[in-house]
Amino acid sequence: MKIGVVTFPGSLDDVDAQRAVRIGGNEAVALWHGDEDLHGVDAIVLPGGFSYGDYLRCGAISRFSPVMTSLVEAAGKGMPVLGICNGFQVLCESHLLPGALIRNDHRKFICRDQRLRIENATTAWTSAYAAGQEITVVLKNGEGAYVADEATLDRLEGEGQVVARYLGNPNGSQRDIAGVTNAAGNVVGLMPHPEHAVEDLTGPGTDGLGFFTSLVERAFA
């Protein structure tokens, strides 16, 4: 599959995401934030970083990038979209996902290996895992605490839209939420970085690879 990886001004993990896409058996296509053309991709990854310097709010300016106009339309038609870290923030700012990401409760940037539990293994990006499976990926953020009103949190829980949960809450995220999905299951936001856990040599293992093989496995299922 052709998976586009968007580069915004300030993106840091776009090349890492492209590499993870290729290791996962897909073709990586570089997409530029100022271009509305999605170049025929089958799915899109919004990578981590500090798009537009995180001015105003994280992701608040990126949501107005020309590429997002096409992305929002494509996501509404079912295209798989994965937002990682800053990409998760952009998806929330674009109202493709509910809730928001705010400053960590300890007011410090955190960078460490992080245990997660996969709660929903039916999305376009998590079908390579089993529900309840525990994985270790990299976490690095300063504004990674997921928040939403109680009604939204209850709905996410009740409708199975919590994708992953922290095992040992690192940043004050409500209900230990590390990632969520939309109701259709094609749009997923994840604060930790699975693209940094796809090779034994350069990360804590290969537990993150499933996020990049799920689309291939679904296509040939």
Rank of each mutant, 00 (worst) to 15 (best):
M1G: 07
K2W: 08
V6Q: 12
P9L: 10
G10C: 05
G10E: 07
S11C: 09
D16V: 03
D16L: 05
A17H: 07
A17I: 11
V21F: 03
I23N: 05
G24L: 08
G24K: 07
E27V: 15
V29W: 14
E36P: 13
D37T: 13
L38I: 08
G40I: 04
V41E: 07
V41L: 09
D42G: 11
A43W: 04
V45Q: 08
G48A: 09
G48L: 07
G48T: 09
G49P: 15
Y52V: 08
Y52W: 13
D54F: 01
L56F: 14
R57E: 10
C58T: 12
G59A: 15
F64K: 00
S65F: 09
V67S: 09
M68Y: 09
M68K: 06
T69E: 11
S70I: 02
L71Y: 00
V72A: 07
A74G: 10
M79H: 08
L82G: 05
L82N: 04
I84Q: 06
N86P: 07
C92D: 03
S94D: 04
L97R: 01
P98S: 08
G99K: 11
A100F: 14
L101T: 00
R103I: 08
R103D: 02
H106K: 15
H106V: 13
H106L: 13
H106M: 13
H106S: 14
R107W: 13
R107E: 14
R107G: 06
I110N: 04
C111E: 15
R112W: 12
R112H: 15
L116S: 03
R117H: 06
R117L: 10
R117C: 11
E119A: 09
E119R: 15
E119S: 09
A121P: 00
T122Q: 14
T123K: 09
T126R: 02
S127P: 07
A128W: 01
A128S: 07
Y129H: 14
Y129D: 12
G132A: 12
T136A: 13
V137R: 00
V137D: 01
V138L: 04
G142F: 08
G142L: 05
E143S: 14
V147M: 15
V147W: 13
A148R: 07
E150Q: 08
T152S: 06
L153G: 00
E157L: 02
E157K: 02
G158K: 01
G160C: 03
V163F: 05
R165W: 05
P170M: 06
S173L: 04
Q174E: 14
I177V: 09
A178Y: 02
V180S: 01
N186I: 06
V188G: 03
L190E: 06
P192Q: 14
P192T: 14
H193Q: 11
P194K: 10
E195H: 02
E195F: 01
E195A: 00
E195P: 01
E195S: 01
V198P: 00
V198M: 11
D200C: 05
D200I: 09
L201W: 14
L201P: 10
G203W: 08
P204N: 05
G205H: 04
L209F: 09
L209K: 11
F211I: 13
F211Y: 15
S214Q: 01
S214R: 01
E217G: 12
